[in-house]
C-alpha cells in the first residue's frame, strides 16, 4: 500500500477526528459503563431472569446507603452464544467521538485484573465530570454454570454459582 502523501494527510486526520463509536451506556454498582452497541442484541425487563448482575461479576462494592436502582437485562451477542447480564438504569445508546476515547494508563493496564476493561473516557466538566469505563462485551466475566436467562425454578432460591471466568482469556 502506498504511503499517504502530505496532501492526503489532512483529509485522513479529519476523517479520524470525525470517527466515533456507538455505545450502549449504563450504570452498574454506581459506576458508568459502556459496551459497543454492535455487540448488544437487545434489552429486556429483568422480571423472572436469573442472569447475573454485572456489578457482582466485576466485584464492584456498592454503597449500602443508596437505594437499588431499577435494573434492565442486556443481551449480548457472543461467538459462544448470546448471554445476558443485569445492569442498572439508565441504559442509553450514545455515540462517543474517537477523540474522547483513551487507552488504559500503563500502570493501570499492567495491574488491572479485569480483561474486559478496554478504554476510558471522561465526559462533562468538573464537578459534573463522568468517567465512562468502556468494556469489551466479548471478554466480560461470565458465570460458567450460569443459566443466563433461563426461567426461574418453581421452588426456592437457586444455589449461587461459584465459578467465574472471563470470556476470551
Amino acid at each position: 500500500m502506498p504511503a499517504a502523501t502530505d496532501q492526503q494527510r489532512p483529509e485522513a486526520s479529519e476523517t479520524a477526528e470525525s470517527r466515533g463509536i456507538d455505545l450502549v451506556r449504563f450504570r452498574a454498582g454506581g459506576l458508568t459503563l459502556a459496551v459497543e452497541a454492535a455487540k448488544v442484541r437487545g434489552m429486556r425487563e429483568t422480571q423472572g431472569s436469573l442472569a447475573p448482575r454485572l456489578a457482582d461479576l466485576l466485584h464492584i462494592q456498592e454503597s449500602p446507603a443508596t437505594a437499588a436502582p431499577p435494573e434492565r437485562l442486556l443481551e449480548f451477542a457472543h461467538p459462544e452464544g448470546p448471554h445476558s447480564l443485569r445492569v442498572d438504569e439508565p441504559v442509553v445508546h450514545c455515540r462517543l467521538p474517537a477523540s474522547a476515547l483513551r487507552p488504559l494508563p500503563p500502570l493501570l493496564a499492567a495491574r488491572q485484573g479485569l480483561a474486559c476493561i478496554r478504554a476510558l473516557a471522561c465526559v462533562g466538566q468538573p464537578p459534573d465530570e463522568v468517567l465512562i469505563i468502556v468494556l469489551d462485551a466479548w471478554r466480560l466475566p461470565r458465570l460458567v454454570t450460569s443459566a443466563d436467562d433461563e426461567d426461574p425454578p418453581d421452588d426456592g432460591p437457586s444455589n449461587p454459582p461459584a465459578l467465574i471466568r472471563q470470556i476470551g482469556d
Binding site: G29, L31, Q112, G113, P126, L131, I133
Partner: peptide, 13 residues
Amino acid sequence: VPGCPPSLEGVIN
C-alpha cells in the same frame, strides 16, 4: 476503576 489493587486508587482527568 474496578479490578485494580487497593493501592491503585483510580484515575484522574
